[in-house]
Design a binder for these strands. Structure first.
Lengths: 160, 160
DNA sequence: GTCGGTGCAAATGCTTTGCATTGAT
DNA sequence: ATCAATGCAAAGCATTTGCACCGAC
C-alpha cells in the first residue's frame, strides 16, 4: 500500500449518525463484519488511544501500554493501529515527520491541524468551509472526495 | 528534526521577486551563503529533479541519476535532497506513504495536491483562498503562518 | 480441530552516517 | 594545507513478518 486509502471517509457515509455509539462498539462491529475478533489486547489499545492527547505516535502508544499492567506486544500494537485505521477509527496525519502520527477520526469533523514549529505543539482546527471547497474541486474534475489532510505550520509572532 | 521546519516560507519573503532567477543560481547562492559548494553532483541532482514530473521520491531520483552518464551515489542524492529542502527549493509533501515525496517549491504557489487513490495520480491544485484561510486561522491565534500542506484524496465517480 | 491472535525475534527497507579518499581554493 | 564533498559499506530505526504457541467457538 503506497498511498493511504483513507477508509475513514468510506465508512462515514453510514456512520455519521452513530456518533453516540462508543468507539469500542464501532470497532467490535467492524471487526466482526470481516470475521475478526475484538480481543482484550485490541480493547486495551483502543482505550489507551482514547486516553491520549489527540495526535499520537506508535511509540508513545506502546510506551503508555507498557506502563499499564496489561502488557501488549509491539507487534500487536502496530497490527491494531492498522486495523483501527482500516476501520476509520483513527487516521494518519502529519508528514515531514520521521514517524507516523495518528489521530482519532471516527465521527470527528476536524478539518486540519495547526503545528507550532517551535514548540511542536499540535492543535486541531475546525473549518467546515475547507471540506465544502474540497468537494467542489473534486466535483469540477469528475472525482469524489474521499478525505483530505490540511496542516498549517506556524510560529508565534513575538518569537523572533 | 522531527517536524518539518518549512524553510521555504522563511526565504520566500526575500525571494518572491526573483522568480526569473534560475533554480541553479538560487541553489548556488544559498550554498555559498553557508560556506558550501555548488558541485557538479549537486547541479546534476537539481537538474534531474527539475526534469522529473513534479512530485518525486528519492528512489525515483536515484534511478534517473543512475541512467545518466554522470553517476551520483545514493548517499549524495539523499544529502542533496536535504540541502535542497533546507534551501526551500524543494519541500516534502504527502503522507500516509511509505517513502518521502518531494516537490519543487521555490517560487511556486501551489496550494495543494489532489491524489487519485485508485490510479495514484497526483495533480497539483492551485487555490489562493487556502493561503488566505491559513493566514486568518493563524492570525486569530496570534501565530504567523510559515507554510501549509493540503492534500485531497479522491476517486473517480464512475468507478464504484 | 480449525482459525485467528499474540509475542518474540528476525527481517525489511528507507534513510543516515563513519570513514578513507578526492578535489577545490 | 585546509575544509568540505563524495562513495562505499555499515549502521539506524520505524515498521512488518515468520513462526510457534495459545485460546475461542
Amino acid at each position: 500500500m503506497d498511498l493511504q486509502p483513507l477508509p475513514a471517509a468510506k465508512s462515514l457515509d453510514l456512520d455519521d449518525l452513530h456518533i453516540i455509539e462508543p468507539l469500542c462498539a464501532v470497532f467490535r462491529r467492524k471487526l466482526k463484519s470481516v470475521g475478526q475478533k475484538y480481543t482484550p489486547e485490541r480493547a486495551q489499545i483502543l482505550d489507551a488511544i482514547i486516553q491520549m492527547d489527540d495526535v499520537f505516535q506508535a511509540d508513545q502508544l506502546i510506551e503508555r501500554l507498557k506502563k499499564s499492567q496489561f502488557r501488549v506486544s509491539k507487534a500487536t500494537a502496530y497490527r491494531t493501529i492498522k486495523l483501527l485505521a482500516d476501520a476509520g477509527i483513527i487516521q494518519q496525519v502529519l508528514f515531514g515527520a520521521d514517524q507516523a502520527h495518528y489521530q482519532l477520526a471516527y465521527g470527528k469533523r476536524s478539518s486540519g491541524l495547526l503545528v507550532d514549529v517551535d514548540t511542536k505543539q499540535i492543535t486541531p482546527i475546525d473549518a467546515p468551509e475547507i471540506a465544502a471547497w474540497r468537494d467542489r474541486i473534486c466535483r469540477e474534475r469528475g472525482l469524489k472526495a474521499e478525505g483530505h489532510r490540511f496542516v498549517i505550520y506556524a510560529r508565534s509572532v513575538n518569537v523572533q
